[in-house]
Amino acid sequence: MLTLISCILLVGYRWITRFLALACYAMLLMPGFLQVFYAVHWCCTDILGYYYFFSSQVRRSIIYGEQPRNRLDLYLPKNSSGSKPVVAFVTGGAWIIGYKAWGALLGKQLAERDIIVACIDYRNFPQGTISDMVKDASQGISFVCNNIANYGGDPNRVYLIGQSAGAHIAACALLDQAIKECGEGENVAWSVSQIKAYIGISGG
């Protein structure tokens, strides 16, 4: 009992209640994850995992910023001739469990259709706030817009896609960038006009 009380005093009541709420939320999501896992992953995880870790067409963990999660994965088509259209993808994960490798299937499928895919990682809660996530995504988009030509991509054909929490974060990054561009003297690293289209999948 004394150990429990000292633990509560040391960690803080609010953090314990938040942790318990997060654990309950994860338990509620578990049946859906298990369905997807058994229906899809058993048939393609081995193949997709091998592709992700061993394919010469995947460039993993390219650094785009200073934070530890400021990394992105690039999925490149086998055919390297000509400039390719580019998809900048921000994955979902309820703002707490998102990870760039979740875009591996999308990256593989689009790379087979001659499209470069950049899966942008970002800080999750509690590593960062929504503002931090939006800042990370914006830096990732900036990297894609300014550097994708080095990988055979066409900087004039960049399409932004976000899924679930990623759709929310990507939309906020676009709005934040538009606000910056309206301000006088605001230094911007990329422009909303560089994005050909935004697609939000199952977002808020």
Rank of each mutant, 00 (worst) to 15 (best):
V134H: 13
F143P: 10
L9T: 02
G183F: 14
L20V: 10
V40R: 15
A165I: 04
G65W: 10
I179A: 10
V87R: 06
V117Y: 08
Y25G: 05
D114C: 03
I5C: 06
F143R: 11
R59K: 12
G166S: 07
R113A: 12
Y52W: 07
G162A: 09
Y52S: 01
G12I: 13
L72V: 04
R18E: 13
V11F: 07
L22Y: 02
I169N: 09
S164H: 10
K196M: 07
S56A: 08
D132N: 15
R113H: 15
T45Q: 14
F33W: 13
I201P: 01
T45A: 09
L72A: 07
L174E: 04
L2K: 15
I148M: 15
I16R: 03
A189P: 02
Q35M: 12
K78N: 11
S6L: 15
S202H: 12
A167V: 01
S191P: 00
I8G: 01
A88M: 08
I199M: 13
G98C: 06
I195W: 14
A149H: 14
P155I: 01
C182A: 11
I116S: 06
A118Q: 05
K180G: 00
I179T: 13
I195P: 05
T3I: 07
F19H: 04
V158K: 10
N150Q: 10
V144Q: 15
L106Q: 05
L10Q: 08
A197S: 13
A189H: 12
I62T: 09
Y99W: 03
E186G: 00
A118Y: 09
K78E: 15
T129K: 13
F54L: 01
G12T: 01
V87L: 14
E66I: 09
Y13P: 04
A149Q: 13
V11T: 14
A137L: 04
W15N: 14
I8P: 00
I116P: 00
G183T: 01
G185D: 06
G82V: 12
G185K: 01
M133S: 06
Y50S: 03
I47C: 04
F19M: 02
F125D: 01
N150P: 03
Y159H: 11
W102H: 08
V158E: 03
Y159P: 03
D46T: 09
I8R: 14
L9A: 05
F19W: 08
Y159W: 11
G153T: 04
G65Q: 11
F19R: 08
Q127T: 10
C182H: 08
A171W: 13
R14M: 00
T45M: 08
G32S: 12
N147Y: 05
V36D: 12
V36A: 15
D73W: 04
E184A: 05
L2N: 11
F125R: 06
L48H: 06
G153D: 07
K108N: 09
A165W: 03
S61D: 13
L106N: 07
S131F: 14
K84H: 06
R113E: 14
L29E: 09
D154L: 05
W95K: 10
A137S: 10
A189M: 13
Y151V: 00
L22M: 10
G166M: 04
R123H: 12
P77G: 13
S55R: 10
G82Q: 06
L105T: 03
E186R: 08
N124C: 15
H41V: 02
I161V: 12
L72W: 09
C44F: 15
N147C: 07
C172A: 15
